[in-house]
């Protein structure tokens, strides 16, 4: 049952591959951003998991307790979450502008319009 102890890491791998697949396979720009978010979230879970110590508690000094979980990865991931939110915001803003310019957020339809433009000029 050793693999069960690595449950978090299995979740990370599954989420990471799901997100990565969505980013690559989907032609819809919003779905791509959703995939990107899942992909990034898996990394967040990975960082949080590696900081957990079995039987460890929150890193607040209390008499009689010797085992603490590592707080640093949490702080790192707070930063990474902020970065992720900023990226999502910029990505969505771009999707809105693309919709204004092309009337579509499907990659193949946008490419078709670009090719048509190229043929007309």
């Amino acid at each position: 049952m050793e693999w069960l102890g690595l449950f978090n890491y299995w979740v990370v791998v599954v989420l990471m591959m799901t997100g990565f697949y969505v980013v690559i396979a989907q032609g819809n720009l919003i779905k791509k951003i959703v995939g990107l978010n899942i992909f990034q979230t898996s990394v967040f879970i990975f960082y949080i998991s590696l900081s957990k110590l079995e039987g460890g508690t929150a890193p607040i000094y209390v008499e009689g307790i010797t085992a603490y979980s590592n707080p640093l990865p949490h702080v790192l991931i707070l930063t990474a979450i902020v970065v992720g939110v900023a990226l999502t915001a910029v990505g969505l803003a771009l999707a809105v502008r693309i919709h204004e310019a092309y009337g579509s957020i499907e990659e193949d339809e946008i490419q078709a319009q670009d090719e048509e433009d190229a043929r007309n000029t």
Partner: peptide
């Protein structure tokens, strides 16, 4: 307007 999609693609690849 093609700048928008190139920026979007750069965002996806850069983030990965």
């Amino acid at each position: 307007r093609r700048a928008l999609l190139s920026s979007f693609n750069y965002l996806i690849m850069g983030t990965i």
